[in-house]
């Protein structure tokens, strides 16, 4: 299977492991990742207000590239996924799309207006809905037996649920099912879908610290050995604010179980 792959700014810089293991595992699973030459940063945040046009353009370009290549669009970073998925939903509104396409028409390669046609997958959704967790289980060579893993969803993968359609936003199971497929034991803890403090960390570290500590304390109190995340900013905030547990990207865990990491 061929997909258009959107790494995003942070996977090229501070979160190279998230990207590298995503690529290596995809190869192992028979998924061909085609990275457009000209992708641009998604901007990190979806601006919900309906008069914000320019801030949507980079996402629309990525979505349009996937549509023109006749493939789904694959994201890994939670923030990219949130921005691109919500932009795609916004583009399904005819009036809004007409305004955006007026801007897009100035792009050299613009041919057909974009109206939200692309299917957007987060890597975890691709594993669940296309590859299948059963298939993953069959391909595991190093089962992570006995490891107690706390899935940290945070906000961006789940909310707003109406647009993200990732899983039940209040009682998600996708990451726990993923952890089970790798042979490990998922730990359910109350703060798994609460916010780490996000971008507020840039100007108010103390505020982010309070939120991050609630998350890591909750995981520790429920007996976890480690925390997995899909988000570079969640990982930064949890580690920066003294997580007693290792915080790793879900792609690294997958690479370990598939035997891709040791083969390096």
């Amino acid at each position: 299977m061929k997909v258009t792959y959107y790494p995003g700014c942070t996977l090229r810089t501070k979160a190279k492991d998230l990207d590298r293991y995503a690529r290596e595992c995809a190869a192992k699973l028979g998924i061909e990742l085609c990275e457009p030459e000209t992708w641009q940063c998604c901007g990190g945040a979806f601006t919900a207000s309906n008069d914000e046009i320019a801030t949507k353009l980079s996402s629309v370009r990525a979505l349009k590239a996937a549509r023109d290549a006749d493939t789904p669009l694959l994201t890994v970073c939670s923030a990219c996924h949130n921005v691109i998925k919500r932009t795609n939903i916004a583009m399904q509104d005819t009036d809004f799309a007409a305004k955006v396409n007026t801007y897009m028409a100035q792009d050299k390669d613009f041919t057909t207006p974009y109206n939200g046609e692309t299917t957007v997958y987060h890597y975890l959704e691709l594993l669940r809905d296309v590859v299948g967790f059963d298939k993953i289980r069959e391909k595991v060579v190093n089962p992570l037996t006995g490891k107690k893993v706390a899935a940290y969803y945070g906000c961006l993968l789940l909310r707003p649920g109406k647009a993200m359609r990732f899983d039940d936003p209040e009682n998600p199971t996708i990451m726990e099912d993923f952890i089970r497929a790798l042979g490990a034991e998922p730990v359910i803890y109350p703060a798994r879908n609460e916010c780490c403090g996000g971008y507020v960390a840039l100007e108010d570290g103390a505020s982010a610290e309070k939120k991050s500590k609630k998350v890591t304390d909750s995981a520790v109190n429920h007996g976890a050995d480690l925390i997995v995340t899909a988000c570079p900013l969640c990982r930064y905030n949890l580690i920066k604010n003294g997580s007693k547990l290792p915080v790793v990207y879900f792609t690294e865990l997958l690479a370990e179980a598939l035997g891709v990491k040791e083969a390096e």
Binding site: K14, A15, A45, E203
Partner: peptide, 28 residues
């Protein structure tokens, strides 16, 4: 503007992901 590009260097540490900076810029 809540922050400008000139404010950024003083707010950074070596590990801060780009995602935090671009997001704060979008918001602020």
């Amino acid at each position: 503007d809540r922050i400008t590009a000139n404010d950024i260097p003083a707010l950074l540490d070596d590990e801060m992901p780009q995602q935090a900076i671009v997001t704060a810029f979008r918001k602020y």
